[in-house]
Each structure stands twice: as C-alpha cells, then as structure tokens.
Design a protein around this nucleic acid. Structure first.
Lengths: 156, 156
DNA sequence: TCCAATTGAATTGTGCGCAATATAAATTCC
DNA sequence: GGAATTTATATTGCGCACAATTCAATTGGA
C-alpha cells in the first residue's frame, strides 16, 4: 500500500512539473510583454510587430514564408500584421515577378529609420532581471533548447 | 575609434540578449501550446482554460479576482473564458451574497470529474524535453525568478 | 449621514495565434 | 503538354490578452 501511494505521488509530481514549467514559460512571456509594452507604445509597435521588424532589420526583401519560419508564425498571423505595418508605412508588400505566389516584404525608409529609435528601447530587462549577462545567456540557451525539442516533437 | 566600435558592439550585444531571451520565452510558450493542443482538444479545453481548471482543482469557490492574481490575468480575459467554461457546465458562477460585487467560481461535478481525465494528459513534456527532472526543476525556478523580477518592476 | 473614493466584474475594441479553408501559381509526373 | 500535386499567401472564425471604460457595490471620512 505504501508503494502505491509513493507511485501515485511520483506521477503527480511529474505532472505538476509539466504544468509548472509550462505555466512558468507562459506567465513569463506575458510579463515580458507587459514590461516592454509601454516602450513599444512610443514606437507605435506591438511586440510581435517589433519581432517582425527585428527580423527585417537583419534581412530585408524576404518572402512572408521566410519571416514565418524565423518567428515560428504562420500566414494567418503574419498577413494582417504585415498589412498593419504597411498601413503604418514601415514596410512594402510586393508580389514577386519571378514567382507570383510569393509576397516580398521590404522595409521603407521609415522602416529602416525606426531601427535607431528602437535601439534605445530595451536594455531595461538586463537591469530589471538582476542577472549577469552570463546567467541570462545560459538561461536563454536552456529555454531555446527546450523549445527546439518541443518543436522537434511536432515534426514527428 | 577602436574604443567606440567596441562600445557600440557591447551595447548591441546587450540589446540582442534582451531580444533573444524575450524571444526565447515567447517562442517556447507557443511551442508548449502547440504540443499540448491536441491533448487538450480531447478534453474540450484550451490551454488557458486548463490553467483555470488547474487553479480551481487546487482551490474552489473563489472570486474571479483570486483566479486572476494566481494566473496573472485580468477580468477582461477571465470573464468570457469563465462564461465558456460555464457553458460547458464545468463551473458555476454565482454572485456572493456577502459582497454583491464578487462572482464566485465553483466547480460542477463534471468539473471535478474532468480532473481524472486531465491527469492522463501531460507527461509528454518530460519525455519530449529529454531533460532530467532536476534540470527541468532548475530551469523552472530560474524562469519563475525572472518572471517575478519582471513583475516586480511593473509594481514599481 | 452622506458623499467621495475604491473595488470587483463586465464590456468594448484592437491585435495576436492558429486551424481550416480557399485560391492561384508553380512543379511533377506521365 | 495536361492532370495531379505541391507551394505561398489570403481569408474566416474562434479564443485569448489587455487597455480603457462603465457600473454597481462597498468602504472611509468629514
């Protein structure tokens, strides 16, 4: 009987850990969003829009698919987001002449210019986190490794 | 000149780290959601709904505010979510007689019963993560610590 | 006692995030 | 070359997530 109780407890704890680490990531993502939001408000961007801009600042003139793969987002999310960025005149959306299926996303002059303003934005995390660069780097690597293993499960 | 270049590089890297750890958390949260989704589909729950149920399985008959504090969510998110859980007959929403402002959330019999079915659901993370329990626990603690420091910044 | 301030939920509006579906263009296979 | 398949994007619908507002109930103070 003692054994059964122990077994159940072990299983329960495993489940609880699953839930705990998942909730930890979930709630931390929201916390990041809330900390960043007032900073992004000044730029007229949301966090996902900022991510897209980050990706574009690194490499421009890319298909929607490319952005989706880099950010783990699909067209259902990106198409309306990119249309809002286009309405804000930060990007241009043009259909490729070589392959009429692909829509190429390019930065406008304003889109490029925003990069300088955006540079002044973050850096609060390092201060707020009360961690060393090394600790944050290690944490990042662990989280990314976890994410990649989860994503690997999805691809069978 | 060489000094200036170095300085800029260091600042750039700090910003990149900010962005990287934020994106790591953001994209991992989505990865969890995608892994869990087919499992929750079978229960007729979404992940946020599951979180609410988890909270209620621990403690029942609580005000909406209580749930919000435990899950870091506000009424704008919880009210419609709880109404959907009510429509699914998993919870009951009743206004407190002591204080007519508060709405108490209680589990129905089906809500309690779902706990057993839900127990069989997770546990895939432990397998998929390819981590030991100790590693996951440590990672969870680090992430939670980061989250709590971020949330502390919000409360000034 | 009465009025001002606070509190707890609900409502409204915007923007993700994703599944399912649609559509059109390209590619493959015969 | 033409049918079948695949690929890239767009559309629709649903459910968060949150800011801002509203409203009723309660609390605190003068």
């Amino acid at each position: 009987m003692g054994t059964m109780v122990r077994k159940q407890t072990a299983a329960d704890q495993a489940l609880r850990l699953d839930n705990q680490i998942c909730f930890a990531v979930y709630s931390t993502a929201h916390a990041f969003n809330r900390v960043y939001k007032p900073l992004f408000d000044r730029l007229g961007l949301t966090y996902p829009q900022y991510l897209v801009m980050l990706a574009l600042w690194e490499r421009d003139d890319v298909p929607v698919k490319d952005l989706g793969e880099r950010l783990f987002l699909d067209s259902g999310t990106l198409t309306p987001l990119l249309k809002r960025l286009e309405a804000a005149e930060l990007v241009r959306r043009t259909r490729s002449t070589e392959d009429e299926r692909v829509v190429l996303i390019a930065l406008t002059q304003q889109g490029h210019a925003l990069r300088e303003k955006a540079k002044a934005v973050p850096q609060s995390i390092l201060a707020a986190s009360d961690c060393t660069v090394g600790e944050l780097l290690a944490m990042k690597d662990e989280i990314v490794a976890l994410r990649d293993r989860l994503n690997a499960v999805l691809g069978e």
